[in-house]
Design a protein around this nucleic acid. Structure first.
Length: 460
RNA sequence: GGAGAGGUGGCCGAGUGGUUGAAGGCGGCAGACUCGAAAUCUGUUGUGCCGCAAGGUACCGGGGGUUCGAAUCCCCCCCUCUCCGCCA
């Protein structure tokens, strides 16, 4: 049967489909220098920046070719009409003369279409490789060192003993078993046991309840496998194929990946749709496992639950009208933060610098939770506003209100998402922040109804 | 896995190879009638691409083919439904 293949680095061509123009081609053509300046802000490489000029050039050539082809088609259509009439009138030789002209035109049309096909494929591939533009007010910078702290909450607890890393805490309690996990799938996997497993399951219920009951999200359950085209829609493909696990065999005829985050299937739910303005905003919350190859992260966070090939996450996804996405982003961040506050975990929020903002995002706020053993804040949530970047890729539109109460032309929606929250890393934070001198771990109040215990002690 | 049926506009549903982007109905929108509403009547009501525009062009699940011309004919694929088998 179908096996899971090794992550691959060669970009898989996703099936061609509609959309695929990443940045607004008109906007690119109108002011390529502005686009290039923005790409420079996010430290795009020279090849990427060169793609802008290539797009301008290809788009221009495309227009001419399309026009010539359409004129030939128009001629063919009218000639065909005439031929029909001539046949009916029995004027065969006149019909034959027109047939000859159509045949000639068809030859040229075929040439043009071959040329157009190649040109459009290159245009598409080039456009898909361009990252989103970062917002103007995103802080200038090259890396996470340039991120700007925009908020902080809680006070790290003071310990009268040396706080242990989560691995020591969990293994000592018998709720975390990395050795046995390694027997099954090698490094970067975990096995939870007893109240450890229950605690993780409780976090899922807790976050889902929080967001559905208090924050207005609709819960969805989705496939954990997606076709390549879907991963292209959110921006994982074509550039980051190596970050995902790919099935060794096509599924239902198409190249298929394990989801790296619920963002991918959930954001794509409404691809190729035109949503009514009244339907917006859409707010989805979705619990899924997440599979990541972690290619290129060898040696980083090798121990424990912080960086693993499989973890669980509750994800928040929004689809909004363009004018509402800034407010939605603020709400999204607040909703994710609320998860940490209810669990009484200290955190800070960081506005990512231009160089640290991910490929698809226009702006991103990371939430970082305090880990006592590392005396450091570690990322638990990236809340991003993608503006219309993903929507263009997946042809996700809505119908804005038009002039005088009439309906307007379909326009691209905005999409956003953020973790709310990842179970593994939150579990790490709980084990570390709530550990006691005797090795037990106190369960925060908010989780006690879910866990059915107020503490995890040795022997539980 | 085996056998069969089917995929047409927001929905239902016609469609003989040639004014069919697509009849008809429902729904939606606008107007008339009304004090208002219902009912009725009239009109209108898809999306992409090229173009300043006028306009042109493409799209009837997807792709290929036949033809001067394809929603209509042929081939391949995908999806949905029914029955059988298997299975959580």
């Amino acid at each position: 049967m179908t096996a899971i293949g090794r992550p691959h680095t060669a970009p898989t061509p996703a099936s061609p489909g509609p959309g695929g123009s990443v940045l607004d081609p008109r906007a690119v053509a109108a002011d390529p220098d502005r686009i290039k300046a923005n790409l420079a802000r996010r430290r795009a490489d020279a090849d990427t920046v060169a793609g802008v000029d290539r797009i301008v050039e290809l788009s221009g050539r495309r227009g001419g070719l399309v026009q010539e082809r359409d004129e030939l088609r128009a001629r063919r259509n009218s000639l065909s009409d005439e031929i029909g009439g001539l046949y009916k009138a029995g004027r065969r030789d006149e019909a034959e003369a027109r047939k000859a002209e159509v045949a000639q035109g068809n030859t040229r049309i075929a040439e043009l279409e071959t040329e157009l096909g190649a040109l459009e494929e290159e245009l598409r591939a080039t456009a898909l490789g361009l990252p989103n533009l970062v917002d103007d007010d995103v802080p200038e910078g090259t890396s996470e060192a340039d991120n700007v702290q925009v908020g902080t909450w809680g006070t790290p607890r003071t310990f009268d003993f040396t706080p242990q890393p989560h691995v020591e805490v969990g293994e000592a309690l018998g709720i975390l078993d990395l050795e046995r996990a390694a027997k099954l799938t090698g490094t970067r996997f975990s096995v939870l046991r007893g109240l450890g497993a229950r605690l993780e399951r409780s976090l899922a219920s807790f976050f889902l309840d929080l967001h559905t009951r208090e924050h207005g999200y609709t819960e969805v359950a989705v496939p954990y496998l997606v076709h390549a085209r879907i991963a292209e829609g959110t921006g994982q493909l074509p550039k980051f194929a190596g970050d995902m696990f790919r099935l060794a065999e096509p599924l239902n005829g198409e190249t298929t990946y394990l989801v790296p985050t619920a963002e991918v299937p959930v954001t794509n739910l409404h691809r190729d749709e035109i949503l009514e303005a009244e339907q917006l905003p859409l707010q989805y919350v979705c619990f899924t496992p997440c599979f990541r190859s972690e290619a290129g992260s060898a040696g980083r966070d090798v121990r424990g639950l912080i960086r693993v090939h499989q973890f669980h996450k509750v994800e928040l996804v929004w689809v909004t009208a363009p004018e509402d996405s800034d407010a939605a982003h603020a709400s999204l961040v607040r909703h994710a933060e609320e998860g940490l506050r209810r669990l009484e975990l200290p955190y800070r929020s960081m506005l990512l610098s231009s160089g640290d903002t991910s490929f698809s995002a226009a702006r991103c706020i990371d939430l970082e939770v305090w880990l006592p053993s590392q005396k450091a804040f570690r990322e638990v949530s990236s809340c991003s506003n993608f503006r219309d970047f993903q929507a263009r890729r997946m042809n996700l539109r809505y119908r804005p209100p038009g002039e005088g109460g009439k309906k307007g032309k379909p326009a691209f929606a905005h999409t956003l998402n953020g973790s709310g929250l990842p179970l593994g890393r939150v579990l790490v934070a709980l084990l570390e922040n709530y550990q006691q001198a005797d090795g037990s771990v106190v369960i925060p109040d908010a989780l006690r109804p879910y866990v059915g215990a107020d503490r995890i002690a040795l022997g539980d």
